[in-house]
Deep mutational scan, measured.
Amino acid sequence: TEEFVRLWREAVRHNQTLHWNGTDFIPGDEWAEEFARREEEKL
């Protein structure tokens, strides 16, 4: 979602874990980066 992408970019900028829907998205984590890339492509 647009909100997820916005929060993810913020988390990456501050190198912080994003807690989203009970899942931890960690900047630099391969799975999280791939998920975020797919979400961005949907926008």
Rank of each mutant, 00 (worst) to 15 (best):
V12W: 03
E2A: 14
K42V: 05
E41T: 11
L43H: 06
A32L: 04
R13C: 15
F4L: 02
V12M: 07
A11S: 05
D24Y: 08
E30V: 13
T23S: 11
R9H: 14
E34D: 13
I26M: 12
E10V: 04
N15G: 14
A36M: 09
H14V: 13
G28D: 02
E33V: 07
A11I: 01
A32W: 04
T17G: 05
R6I: 10
V12E: 05
E2G: 11
N21K: 14
R6L: 11
L18E: 01
E30W: 12
E3G: 07
E2H: 13
D29E: 12
F4E: 00
R6M: 09
I26H: 11
E10D: 12
E3V: 08
E39M: 15
E40L: 14
A36C: 13
I26P: 05
E33M: 09
R13H: 10
N15D: 06
G28Y: 02
D29V: 10
H14G: 10
G22L: 03
F4W: 08
I26C: 11
N15E: 06
R13F: 14
Q16M: 14
Q16G: 05
L43F: 09
R37V: 05
N15S: 09
R13P: 00
F35H: 07
E3M: 09
D29P: 02
P27S: 01
F35G: 01
I26K: 14
P27Q: 02
D24V: 12
R6F: 12
L7T: 00
T17P: 12
G22T: 02
E30K: 14
V5F: 06
Q16L: 14
N15C: 13
F25P: 01
E33P: 02
E39K: 08
A32T: 04
R9D: 13
V5D: 08
I26Q: 12
T17L: 09
R9I: 09
P27C: 10
R38S: 12
R37Y: 05
T23G: 06
E33I: 09
V12N: 03
H14Y: 12
L7S: 07
V5Q: 05
E40Y: 12
F25S: 00
Q16R: 14
V5T: 08
E39V: 15
V12L: 09
K42G: 04
W8N: 03
R38V: 11
T17F: 05
I26Y: 09
I26N: 11
E10H: 04
E3P: 01
R9S: 06
E2R: 13
V12C: 00
G28L: 03
D24S: 08
R38Q: 13
R37P: 01
P27L: 03
E10N: 04
W8S: 04
N15V: 04
L7I: 03
E10Y: 05
G22V: 01
P27A: 02
D24P: 07
G28V: 00
A36G: 07
I26R: 14
A11V: 01
F35Y: 14
E39H: 10
E40I: 15
E30R: 12
W31F: 09
